[in-house]
Simulated assay, not measured.
Amino acid sequence: MRRILGSLSAAIVLMVTQIFDADAEILIGMAGALTGPNAYQGEQQQQGVEMAVADLNASGGVLGQQVKLISVDDACDSGQAIAAAYRIVAARVAFVVGHQCSSASIPAAEIYDRAGIIQMTPASTNPRLTEEGRDNVFRICGRDDQQGSIAADFLVARWPNAKIAIVSDGSVYGMGLAEETRRQINKRGIGETLYEDLTPGQSDYSPLVAKLRAAGVEVTYFGGYYREAALLVRSAHEQGYKMQLVSGDGIASEAFAQVTGEAGEGTLFTSFRDPRRSSLAEPVVNRLRQQGFEPEGYTLYSYGAVQAWAQAVTVAGTVDAKAVIAALRTGEFGTILGQISFDHKGDVRQPGFEWFIWRGGKYVPLE
Protein backbone atom coordinates (compact mmCIF):
# COMPACT_ATOMS: atom_id res chain seq x y z
CA MET A 1 0.00 0.00 0.00
CA ARG A 2 2.85 2.36 0.84
CA ARG A 3 4.41 1.64 -2.55
CA ILE A 4 1.07 2.32 -4.29
CA LEU A 5 0.55 5.58 -2.39
CA GLY A 6 4.15 6.57 -3.04
CA SER A 7 3.75 5.94 -6.75
CA LEU A 8 0.45 7.83 -6.78
CA SER A 9 2.01 10.80 -4.98
CA ALA A 10 4.90 10.85 -7.41
CA ALA A 11 2.49 10.76 -10.34
CA ILE A 12 0.50 13.64 -8.88
CA VAL A 13 3.66 15.66 -8.30
CA LEU A 14 4.80 14.96 -11.89
CA MET A 15 1.39 15.94 -13.27
CA VAL A 16 1.31 19.19 -11.28
CA THR A 17 4.89 19.96 -12.33
CA GLN A 18 4.02 19.39 -15.97
CA ILE A 19 0.98 21.65 -15.69
CA PHE A 20 3.06 24.33 -13.97
CA ASP A 21 5.78 24.05 -16.61
CA ALA A 22 3.22 24.37 -19.40
CA ASP A 23 1.76 27.45 -17.73
CA ALA A 24 5.25 28.87 -17.18
CA GLU A 25 5.77 29.44 -20.90
CA ILE A 26 4.29 32.14 -23.08
CA LEU A 27 4.19 31.18 -26.74
CA ILE A 28 4.84 33.69 -29.50
CA GLY A 29 5.13 33.12 -33.24
CA MET A 30 7.34 34.27 -36.09
CA ALA A 31 5.97 34.03 -39.63
CA GLY A 32 8.06 34.83 -42.67
CA ALA A 33 9.81 33.51 -45.76
CA LEU A 34 12.17 30.79 -44.54
CA THR A 35 12.25 29.20 -48.00
CA GLY A 36 11.94 30.57 -51.53
CA PRO A 37 13.54 33.58 -53.21
CA ASN A 38 12.92 35.89 -50.22
CA ALA A 39 14.39 33.55 -47.61
CA TYR A 40 17.47 35.74 -47.25
CA GLN A 41 15.30 38.47 -45.75
CA GLY A 42 13.19 35.95 -43.86
CA GLU A 43 16.36 34.94 -42.06
CA GLN A 44 16.80 38.55 -40.95
CA GLN A 45 13.40 38.41 -39.29
CA GLN A 46 14.12 35.01 -37.71
CA GLN A 47 17.48 36.09 -36.30
CA GLY A 48 16.03 39.26 -34.81
CA VAL A 49 13.14 37.49 -33.08
CA GLU A 50 15.33 34.66 -31.79
CA MET A 51 17.79 37.10 -30.24
CA ALA A 52 14.98 39.15 -28.68
CA VAL A 53 13.40 36.05 -27.13
CA ALA A 54 16.76 34.86 -25.81
CA ASP A 55 17.39 38.26 -24.23
CA LEU A 56 13.91 38.38 -22.71
CA ASN A 57 14.34 34.96 -21.15
CA ALA A 58 17.81 35.80 -19.86
CA SER A 59 16.31 38.77 -17.99
CA GLY A 60 13.50 36.74 -16.44
CA GLY A 61 11.00 36.44 -19.26
CA VAL A 62 7.65 38.23 -19.33
CA LEU A 63 5.50 38.45 -16.19
CA GLY A 64 7.89 35.95 -14.63
CA GLN A 65 7.32 33.41 -17.40
CA GLN A 66 9.71 32.21 -20.08
CA VAL A 67 8.90 32.94 -23.71
CA LYS A 68 8.92 30.16 -26.30
CA LEU A 69 9.16 30.87 -30.03
CA ILE A 70 7.37 28.98 -32.78
CA SER A 71 8.50 29.80 -36.34
CA VAL A 72 6.49 29.08 -39.49
CA ASP A 73 7.36 29.47 -43.17
CA ASP A 74 5.08 31.33 -45.59
CA ALA A 75 7.58 31.65 -48.51
CA CYS A 76 6.12 35.16 -49.07
CA ASP A 77 3.13 33.47 -50.71
CA SER A 78 -0.48 34.35 -49.87
CA GLY A 79 -1.70 30.74 -49.92
CA GLN A 80 1.13 29.49 -47.76
CA ALA A 81 0.66 32.48 -45.47
CA ILE A 82 -2.91 31.42 -44.74
CA ALA A 83 -1.74 27.90 -43.89
CA ALA A 84 1.06 29.33 -41.74
CA ALA A 85 -1.40 31.59 -39.90
CA TYR A 86 -3.65 28.63 -39.08
CA ARG A 87 -0.63 26.79 -37.68
CA ILE A 88 0.15 29.80 -35.50
CA VAL A 89 -3.46 29.92 -34.30
CA ALA A 90 -3.48 26.18 -33.56
CA ALA A 91 -0.38 26.65 -31.39
CA ARG A 92 -2.35 29.22 -29.34
CA VAL A 93 0.34 31.89 -29.37
CA ALA A 94 -0.19 35.26 -27.71
CA PHE A 95 1.63 37.30 -30.35
CA VAL A 96 3.12 36.91 -33.82
CA VAL A 97 5.95 38.84 -35.47
CA GLY A 98 5.19 38.89 -39.17
CA HIS A 99 4.54 38.45 -41.85
CA GLN A 100 7.45 39.74 -43.90
CA CYS A 101 5.78 40.31 -47.27
CA SER A 102 2.61 42.34 -47.71
CA SER A 103 1.14 39.58 -49.88
CA ALA A 104 1.42 37.32 -46.83
CA SER A 105 0.62 39.77 -44.03
CA ILE A 106 -2.69 40.98 -45.44
CA PRO A 107 -4.49 37.61 -45.81
CA ALA A 108 -3.02 36.35 -42.52
CA ALA A 109 -4.24 39.42 -40.61
CA GLU A 110 -7.90 38.38 -40.88
CA ILE A 111 -7.11 34.95 -39.42
CA TYR A 112 -5.24 36.41 -36.46
CA ASP A 113 -8.04 38.92 -35.91
CA ARG A 114 -10.66 36.17 -35.63
CA ALA A 115 -8.41 34.24 -33.25
CA GLY A 116 -7.62 37.26 -31.06
CA ILE A 117 -3.87 37.18 -31.74
CA ILE A 118 -1.78 40.35 -31.93
CA GLN A 119 0.20 40.72 -35.15
CA MET A 120 3.12 43.11 -35.60
CA THR A 121 5.01 43.26 -38.87
CA PRO A 122 8.62 44.49 -39.09
CA ALA A 123 8.60 44.57 -42.89
CA SER A 124 5.20 44.74 -44.65
CA THR A 125 4.80 48.25 -46.04
CA ASN A 126 1.59 48.12 -48.09
CA PRO A 127 -0.85 50.66 -46.55
CA ARG A 128 -3.80 48.27 -46.90
CA LEU A 129 -2.57 46.19 -43.95
CA THR A 130 -3.44 48.85 -41.39
CA GLU A 131 -6.17 50.56 -43.42
CA GLU A 132 -8.55 47.61 -43.04
CA GLY A 133 -9.33 48.66 -39.48
CA ARG A 134 -8.26 45.64 -37.41
CA ASP A 135 -7.41 46.39 -33.78
CA ASN A 136 -4.93 43.51 -33.54
CA VAL A 137 -2.60 44.67 -36.35
CA PHE A 138 0.51 46.79 -35.79
CA ARG A 139 3.32 47.89 -38.08
CA ILE A 140 6.73 48.83 -36.63
CA CYS A 141 8.10 49.98 -40.01
CA GLY A 142 6.95 52.66 -42.46
CA ARG A 143 4.35 52.56 -45.24
CA ASP A 144 4.64 52.66 -49.03
CA ASP A 145 2.66 55.86 -49.36
CA GLN A 146 5.38 57.52 -47.26
CA GLN A 147 8.16 55.73 -49.16
CA GLY A 148 6.66 56.49 -52.58
CA SER A 149 6.33 60.17 -51.80
CA ILE A 150 9.96 60.37 -50.70
CA ALA A 151 11.06 58.54 -53.85
CA ALA A 152 9.03 60.87 -56.10
CA ASP A 153 10.50 64.00 -54.50
CA PHE A 154 13.98 62.62 -55.07
CA LEU A 155 13.38 61.54 -58.67
CA VAL A 156 11.88 64.87 -59.69
CA ALA A 157 14.56 66.94 -57.94
CA ARG A 158 17.54 64.88 -59.13
CA TRP A 159 16.43 64.07 -62.69
CA PRO A 160 13.90 66.78 -63.68
CA ASN A 161 14.44 66.29 -67.42
CA ALA A 162 15.29 62.60 -67.57
CA LYS A 163 13.19 59.85 -69.11
CA ILE A 164 11.91 57.81 -66.16
CA ALA A 165 10.40 54.31 -66.27
CA ILE A 166 8.38 52.66 -63.52
CA VAL A 167 8.68 48.87 -63.26
CA SER A 168 6.79 46.59 -60.87
CA ASP A 169 7.33 42.93 -60.05
CA GLY A 170 3.56 42.46 -59.77
CA SER A 171 3.61 41.53 -56.08
CA VAL A 172 1.32 43.25 -53.57
CA TYR A 173 4.36 45.06 -52.19
CA GLY A 174 6.04 45.85 -55.50
CA MET A 175 2.91 46.98 -57.32
CA GLY A 176 1.81 49.12 -54.38
CA LEU A 177 5.17 50.87 -54.13
CA ALA A 178 5.47 51.37 -57.90
CA GLU A 179 1.93 52.76 -58.16
CA GLU A 180 2.46 55.13 -55.26
CA THR A 181 5.73 56.45 -56.72
CA ARG A 182 4.10 56.83 -60.14
CA ARG A 183 1.16 58.73 -58.62
CA GLN A 184 3.45 61.08 -56.76
CA ILE A 185 5.73 61.93 -59.71
CA ASN A 186 2.64 62.55 -61.82
CA LYS A 187 1.38 64.98 -59.17
CA ARG A 188 4.66 66.83 -59.53
CA GLY A 189 4.15 67.24 -63.26
CA ILE A 190 6.40 64.42 -64.47
CA GLY A 191 5.03 61.69 -66.70
CA GLU A 192 6.77 58.31 -66.86
CA THR A 193 8.16 57.23 -70.23
CA LEU A 194 7.19 53.59 -69.62
CA TYR A 195 5.26 51.65 -67.02
CA GLU A 196 5.99 47.94 -67.08
CA ASP A 197 5.26 44.82 -65.01
CA LEU A 198 7.66 41.91 -65.02
CA THR A 199 7.06 38.30 -64.06
CA PRO A 200 9.00 37.40 -60.89
CA GLY A 201 11.04 34.23 -60.73
CA GLN A 202 12.44 34.40 -64.26
CA SER A 203 16.17 34.15 -64.87
CA ASP A 204 16.43 36.60 -67.77
CA TYR A 205 14.94 40.08 -68.08
CA SER A 206 17.03 41.16 -71.05
CA PRO A 207 13.96 41.75 -73.32
CA LEU A 208 12.58 44.26 -70.79
CA VAL A 209 15.98 45.89 -70.45
CA ALA A 210 16.21 46.17 -74.24
CA LYS A 211 12.78 47.83 -74.29
CA LEU A 212 13.85 50.35 -71.65
CA ARG A 213 17.01 51.10 -73.58
CA ALA A 214 15.16 51.54 -76.87
CA ALA A 215 12.83 54.05 -75.20
CA GLY A 216 15.82 56.09 -74.03
CA VAL A 217 15.03 55.51 -70.34
CA GLU A 218 17.76 56.97 -68.13
CA VAL A 219 16.27 56.19 -64.69
CA THR A 220 14.19 53.14 -63.78
CA TYR A 221 12.23 53.07 -60.55
CA PHE A 222 11.62 49.46 -59.50
CA GLY A 223 8.97 48.32 -57.05
CA GLY A 224 9.77 44.79 -55.92
CA TYR A 225 12.29 42.51 -54.27
CA TYR A 226 16.05 42.24 -54.54
CA ARG A 227 16.33 39.24 -56.87
CA GLU A 228 14.49 40.77 -59.83
CA ALA A 229 16.07 44.17 -59.22
CA ALA A 230 19.52 42.58 -59.26
CA LEU A 231 18.84 40.72 -62.51
CA LEU A 232 17.62 43.93 -64.17
CA VAL A 233 20.79 45.75 -63.17
CA ARG A 234 23.06 42.91 -64.22
CA SER A 235 21.32 42.55 -67.59
CA ALA A 236 21.63 46.28 -68.30
CA HIS A 237 25.34 46.14 -67.43
CA GLU A 238 25.87 43.16 -69.74
CA GLN A 239 24.19 45.08 -72.57
CA GLY A 240 26.43 48.11 -72.00
CA TYR A 241 23.38 50.14 -71.01
CA LYS A 242 24.00 52.78 -68.32
CA MET A 243 20.68 52.65 -66.51
CA GLN A 244 20.27 54.20 -63.07
CA LEU A 245 18.14 51.93 -60.89
CA VAL A 246 16.21 53.40 -57.95
CA SER A 247 14.15 51.19 -55.65
CA GLY A 248 12.70 50.66 -52.18
CA ASP A 249 13.38 48.63 -49.03
CA GLY A 250 12.91 45.31 -50.85
CA ILE A 251 16.53 45.44 -52.02
CA ALA A 252 18.02 46.09 -48.56
CA SER A 253 19.89 42.81 -48.58
CA GLU A 254 23.48 41.89 -49.33
CA ALA A 255 22.06 39.18 -51.58
CA PHE A 256 21.40 42.00 -54.08
CA ALA A 257 25.13 42.64 -54.47
CA GLN A 258 25.85 38.92 -54.62
CA VAL A 259 23.78 38.76 -57.82
CA THR A 260 24.82 42.08 -59.38
CA GLY A 261 28.52 42.12 -58.60
CA GLU A 262 30.06 45.42 -59.68
CA ALA A 263 27.02 46.16 -61.84
CA GLY A 264 25.10 47.10 -58.70
CA GLU A 265 27.44 49.96 -57.81
CA GLY A 266 25.54 53.23 -57.51
CA THR A 267 22.06 51.69 -57.20
CA LEU A 268 19.91 53.89 -54.96
CA PHE A 269 17.05 52.91 -52.69
CA THR A 270 14.95 54.03 -49.78
CA SER A 271 14.63 51.92 -46.68
CA PHE A 272 13.89 52.23 -43.00
CA ARG A 273 16.41 54.04 -40.84
CA ASP A 274 19.36 51.73 -40.20
CA PRO A 275 19.48 51.16 -36.42
CA ARG A 276 22.86 49.45 -36.70
CA ARG A 277 24.39 52.93 -36.35
CA SER A 278 22.57 53.62 -33.07
CA SER A 279 24.19 53.12 -29.67
CA LEU A 280 20.88 51.65 -28.48
CA ALA A 281 21.34 48.70 -30.82
CA GLU A 282 25.09 48.29 -30.44
CA PRO A 283 25.08 45.39 -27.93
CA VAL A 284 22.63 43.37 -30.05
CA VAL A 285 24.47 44.20 -33.27
CA ASN A 286 27.80 43.10 -31.78
CA ARG A 287 26.41 39.79 -30.50
CA LEU A 288 24.78 38.95 -33.81
CA ARG A 289 28.00 39.75 -35.65
CA GLN A 290 29.92 37.53 -33.23
CA GLN A 291 27.55 34.76 -34.29
CA GLY A 292 28.45 35.42 -37.93
CA PHE A 293 25.23 37.21 -38.86
CA GLU A 294 25.06 40.77 -40.17
CA PRO A 295 21.89 42.39 -38.72
CA GLU A 296 20.85 44.29 -41.84
CA GLY A 297 17.38 44.94 -43.24
CA TYR A 298 14.55 43.73 -41.03
CA THR A 299 16.65 42.10 -38.28
CA LEU A 300 16.56 44.86 -35.68
CA TYR A 301 12.98 45.83 -36.52
CA SER A 302 11.98 42.26 -35.68
CA TYR A 303 13.88 42.52 -32.40
CA GLY A 304 12.14 45.82 -31.66
CA ALA A 305 8.71 44.31 -32.32
CA VAL A 306 9.27 41.74 -29.57
CA GLN A 307 10.48 44.46 -27.22
CA ALA A 308 7.39 46.62 -27.79
CA TRP A 309 5.03 43.70 -27.23
CA ALA A 310 6.84 42.56 -24.07
CA GLN A 311 6.70 46.05 -22.57
CA ALA A 312 2.99 46.34 -23.41
CA VAL A 313 2.38 43.01 -21.65
CA THR A 314 4.18 44.32 -18.58
CA VAL A 315 2.02 47.46 -18.61
CA ALA A 316 -1.16 45.41 -19.05
CA GLY A 317 -0.11 42.88 -16.42
CA THR A 318 -1.45 40.08 -18.63
CA VAL A 319 -1.03 38.53 -22.08
CA ASP A 320 -4.75 38.95 -22.73
CA ALA A 321 -4.96 40.41 -26.25
CA LYS A 322 -7.48 43.17 -25.51
CA ALA A 323 -5.47 44.50 -22.59
CA VAL A 324 -2.17 44.34 -24.50
CA ILE A 325 -3.71 46.03 -27.56
CA ALA A 326 -4.91 48.88 -25.34
CA ALA A 327 -1.39 49.24 -23.93
CA LEU A 328 0.16 49.23 -27.40
CA ARG A 329 -2.29 51.87 -28.66
CA THR A 330 -1.68 54.27 -25.78
CA GLY A 331 1.88 53.67 -24.61
CA GLU A 332 5.39 54.58 -25.64
CA PHE A 333 8.08 51.93 -25.68
CA GLY A 334 11.85 52.03 -25.40
CA THR A 335 13.38 49.79 -28.05
CA ILE A 336 16.63 49.42 -29.95
CA LEU A 337 14.86 51.50 -32.62
CA GLY A 338 14.40 54.33 -30.12
CA GLN A 339 11.19 55.46 -28.41
CA ILE A 340 8.20 54.32 -30.45
CA SER A 341 4.43 54.56 -30.26
CA PHE A 342 1.54 53.58 -32.51
CA ASP A 343 -1.34 55.59 -33.97
CA HIS A 344 -5.02 54.63 -34.03
CA LYS A 345 -4.46 52.48 -37.14
CA GLY A 346 -1.56 50.56 -35.62
CA ASP A 347 1.14 52.32 -37.67
CA VAL A 348 4.29 53.39 -35.90
CA ARG A 349 4.44 57.15 -35.38
CA GLN A 350 8.21 57.30 -35.99
CA PRO A 351 8.60 55.48 -39.34
CA GLY A 352 11.65 57.21 -40.83
CA PHE A 353 12.94 56.40 -44.29
CA GLU A 354 16.37 57.34 -45.58
CA TRP A 355 18.34 56.98 -48.79
CA PHE A 356 21.03 54.35 -49.33
CA ILE A 357 23.49 53.60 -52.10
CA TRP A 358 25.30 50.40 -53.02
CA ARG A 359 29.09 50.81 -52.80
CA GLY A 360 31.70 48.09 -52.64
CA GLY A 361 29.13 45.33 -52.28
CA LYS A 362 27.40 46.94 -49.28
CA TYR A 363 24.71 49.54 -48.87
CA VAL A 364 25.61 52.73 -47.03
CA PRO A 365 23.69 55.95 -46.34
CA LEU A 366 23.61 58.38 -49.24
CA GLU A 367 25.36 61.50 -48.01
Rank of each mutant, 00 (worst) to 15 (best):
V209A: 03
A210C: 04
K211Y: 09
K211I: 08
L212T: 03
L212Q: 09
L212I: 03
A215L: 12
A215G: 12
A215Q: 07
G216Q: 11
G216R: 08
E218A: 06
V219I: 12
V219C: 06
V219G: 09
T220K: 02
T220P: 10
Y221F: 14
G224M: 05
Y225F: 11
Y226G: 13
Y226C: 12
L231V: 01
L232V: 00
L232R: 05
R234F: 02
S235F: 03
A236R: 02
H237Y: 14
H237I: 04
E238N: 10
Y241L: 04
K242I: 09
K242D: 15
M243K: 07
Q244A: 06
L245K: 03
V246W: 05
V246A: 09
S247R: 02
G248P: 09
D249L: 05
G250K: 02
I251P: 07
S253F: 04
A255V: 04
A255G: 12
A255I: 00
A257L: 05
Q258R: 14
G264T: 08
G264F: 01
E265I: 06
G266W: 03
G266Y: 00
T267K: 00
L268A: 14
F269Y: 14
F269T: 07
F269R: 02
T270C: 13
S271T: 13
F272Y: 12
D274T: 08
D274V: 12
S278K: 10
S279H: 10
L280E: 07
A281M: 04
E282Q: 14
P283N: 03
N286K: 13
L288A: 08
L288N: 04
G292C: 12
G292Y: 12
F293I: 13
F293A: 11
F293M: 08
F293E: 08
E296Q: 15
Y298T: 11
Y301F: 14
Y301K: 04
Y303G: 02
Y303R: 02
A305D: 09
A308Q: 06
W309Y: 15
W309F: 15
A312Y: 01
T314F: 04
V315I: 12
V315C: 02
A316S: 08
G317M: 07
T318F: 05
V319E: 13
D320I: 00
K322L: 09
